[in-house]
Amino acid sequence: MSLQAVLFDMDGTLVDSEAMHFVCWSTLLAPFGVSYLEDEFCQRFSGRPTLEAAIEIKSENNLSVSAEFLAAEKYRLFGEYVKTNLPPLMPFVVQTLKAVKNSGLKMALVTGSATSEAMPILKGLEFYELFDSVVTKDDVITPKPAGDPYLLALKQINIKAENAIAVEDTFTGVSAANNASLRVVAIANSHTKEHDFSKATYCMGNLDEFWQWVQSQL
């Protein structure tokens, strides 16, 4: 069971973008008189599909607009926001991505974000060309926590699940990797430290620790 590929999540794993998602949600919900505390909101919704979050937000606040409208507006706001506000990097991201790439392993980016949200980040940070495959929620019918995004990435890079590992930061992401029969490393951040990572293959502190593990597998 040799390691041949690494499949990275994006938000919260490579970039510290959860606060930016919160800003866009707050901007969207302010006209309705709805507000949330950032830590509570991010802990609750980090990694979850935007439409799923919109359904809950609409229901608990009795909003007159549809959940589909809320989700579409959130995608639009974030896509505009990120054009001029790139998120900060998570620790050891640049070193890890370059090291994995230089090792000869294949790399895929598998995100629950929309293409309009992910591409400005990946291209703005000059990460896009590092990946052999990029899969967003728009590329599949059923996004994370379904395994479909990971299965598509594996198909695109022509690697079997048993020869790859995913890197995630949320319960939703770990579930998606599990559903694709992938090994998965969970690296919690400040917004997801209370998530249930009991189904992760490994729990690690940061990407540098992950790279040290990768080296032991080569």
Score class of each variant (00 low, 15 high):
Y75K: 13
T96K: 01
F92N: 13
Y81W: 08
L51M: 07
M90C: 06
S46C: 14
P49W: 08
L28C: 10
T27M: 15
Y36S: 09
Q43M: 08
I57A: 06
K98Q: 13
L29Y: 14
E40A: 15
N85D: 02
A99P: 00
F45N: 08
C42I: 00
G79K: 05
R44E: 11
L29F: 13
T27V: 11
N61H: 15
V65A: 05
T96A: 12
C42T: 00
C24M: 09
C24W: 09
N85S: 06
T84A: 12
F69V: 07
E38M: 14
E73W: 00
S35I: 06
K74S: 01
L97V: 09
A72D: 10
F92W: 07
V34D: 13
E73R: 12
A99C: 02
F92D: 11
L77K: 04
L28P: 10
N61V: 08
G47E: 05
Y36E: 07
L37W: 01
F69P: 00
S59H: 11
Y36F: 15
S26N: 12
R48I: 09
S59K: 15
R44M: 08
L70K: 05
P87L: 04
V93K: 04
A30R: 15
L63I: 05
A30I: 05
A67E: 11
D39C: 03
V65L: 06
M90E: 07
C42L: 14
P31D: 13
Y36W: 12
Y75N: 10
F41N: 03
E60G: 01
V94N: 08
T84Q: 10
E80M: 06
T50D: 07
M90F: 00
V94K: 13
S26V: 00
A99E: 05
V94L: 09
S66K: 08
E73Q: 15
R76I: 00
L89Q: 07
Q95K: 14
E56F: 08
K83C: 09
T27P: 04
V65P: 02
P49R: 07
F41K: 01
L51Q: 02
W25E: 06
Y75E: 11
L97I: 13
S35C: 14
E68F: 05
L29A: 11
Q95C: 00
G47V: 05
W25K: 11
E73I: 00
V65C: 14
E68A: 13
E60T: 10
W25T: 06
K58D: 01
F45H: 12
P87R: 04
Y75T: 09
L86R: 03
R44K: 15
